[in-house]
């Protein structure tokens, strides 16, 4: 499969990239790992006239800690997220999530920024970004701005990113002590994308009550969403089996579930509930240490 003809640009700085974006506008697409964009170009579902490769732009990749927050550069590959010692220690839900994306080839090239900018409805990272309360640092001609995760995913493959901006990094604010998280996914049998994926973060106090929770659901609908009903069902409660089970029943609320070959609306709603329960159970286990 061959893409339609395009012109290739390899800028060497963010400034140069923004210049190109400004000049080429609609006709241009940023290229990160290429694992979403290139397949679409090969099928000619996307036909940008210009492709701007971010790989030569310095400073866009890497994982660091900054004032308690975890900061991950947009061009950091899934594999780097999966294997980062810092993440494995401080934020294992992120490395876990990255580790179940596609296969090793995909993880070696695909990037966290690409995934979050592309906002595929079946992508994994979005659920975890919601659960963690991520913030997106975007840079445009007027400088940088930060977007909260709840404003980021706006629709099917639509985000709050402006056309003249690039996503520079993603910040994950620190969670208090006694927190734990888990991502549980029901993979598509062919692509391995999430038919349904649920990420859950919980903070437990000394008595075992849940003081804070974040639950994100991906796969089932046209975009990843926060499962507010589930969060409300566990915050302030002691997380026994029945509480978790009960809260998980709300996992499909607010998800515009789409039927396809992988399942009817009813089945996918059911999967949302099952995987919400499993994710919370695993998160609680982790939070208890």
């Amino acid at each position: 499969m061959y893409p339609a003809a395009f012109e290739y640009h390899a800028p060497a700085s963010i400034q140069e990239t923004l210049g190109l974006l400004g000049r080429l506008g609609d006709d241009a697409k940023l290229l990160a790992g290429g694992h979403s964009l290139v397949p679409m170009m090969k099928l000619r579902l996307a036909r940008p006239k210009h492709v701007i490769d971010l790989r030569k732009v310095p400073g866009l990749a890497g994982v660091r800690e900054e004032g308690g927050s975890i900061v991950i550069g947009a061009m950091t590959t899934h594999w780097q997220v999966e294997s980062s010692p810092l993440l494995c220690e401080k934020c294992p839900i992120l490395s876990d999530t990255a580790s179940v994306i596609g296969d090793p080839q995909v993880r070696n090239l695909g990037t966290i920024g690409g995934s979050l900018a592309h906002a595929d409805p079946a992508a994994d990272i979005p659920a975890t970004a919601i659960a963690l309360g991520a913030e997106f640092v975007c840079e445009g001609p007027k400088g940088r701005r930060t977007v909260k995760v709840d404003e980021w995913f706006q629709g099917l493959m639509q985000t709050a990113l402006h056309e003249d901006e690039i996503l520079v990094e993603i910040r994950f604010p620190a969670w208090p002590a006694g927190s734990g998280g888990a991502y549980m996914k029901f993979p598509h049998p062919a692509s391995r994308f999430a038919v349904v994926g649920v990420a859950a973060m919980v903070t437990l106090d000394g008595k075992g009550a849940c003081t804070k929770a974040g639950v994100g659901v991906t796969g089932a609908g046209t975009k990843a969403v926060r499962a507010k009903g589930v969060e409300a069902g566990i915050v302030g409660k002691t997380l026994d089996q029945a509480t978790i089970e009960g809260a998980a029943q709300n996992a499909a609320d607010g998800v515009d579930v789409q039927a396809d070959l992988q399942g009817s609306v009813e089945y996918k709603q059911h999967l949302c509930r099952v995987f919400a329960r499993r994710a919370i159970e695993a998160a609680v286990k982790r939070a208890r240490g």
Binding site: L43, P189, A190, S191, L261
Partner: peptide, 22 residues
């Protein structure tokens, strides 16, 4: 896992790529 599925209405092969055909 495997199965070639046609949409009965449109006659399109729904499982026409490796990301759909398992």
């Amino acid at each position: 896992w495997e199965g070639a599925v046609y949409d009965e209405r449109s006659g399109q092969l729904v499982t026409g790529t490796m990301t759909e055909y398992a």
